[in-house]
């Protein structure tokens, strides 16, 4: 099981637009990825390919989230997803 943390850079948090970009990136991966707020048990992690799950996480700017995935290429995949979360997508 690979695990990475990311600090949400979007000023308004993981709302529709940044969440949409993130979910689209997850959807392109051949892996199952989960997302949870830092400090929460892995069992409560949400499906990262669901925009509604991501939005219901309610992650605000500056919050830390944990991404998890298993399988070949998981480390690289999670690195690329961390990069997306740590970019202020509203600024673009």
């Amino acid at each position: 099981m690979s695990e990475r943390t990311a600090v949400i850079a979007s000023r308004v948090g993981l709302h529709a637009r940044p969440a949409g970009i993130f979910v689209a990136a997850v959807g392109e991966l051949p892996l199952e990825v989960t997302i949870a707020m830092a400090g929460e048990p892995a069992d409560d992690a949400m499906d990262a390919s669901s925009i509604l799950s991501i939005m219901s996480l309610g992650a605000s700017n500056g919050d830390t989230v944990v991404l998890r995935a298993e399988g070949e290429g998981a480390d690289e995949a999670l690195e690329s997803l961390v990069k997306i979360l740590e970019t202020d997508l509203d600024a673009e």
Binding site: A16, R17, D47, S50, L52
Partner: peptide
């Protein structure tokens, strides 16, 4: 962007 996000919601795995 709104349409893209809404499109994802329509076929959302959780929903």
């Amino acid at each position: 962007e709104v349409l893209e996000a809404t499109a994802l919601m329509a076929n959302d795995p959780m929903l």
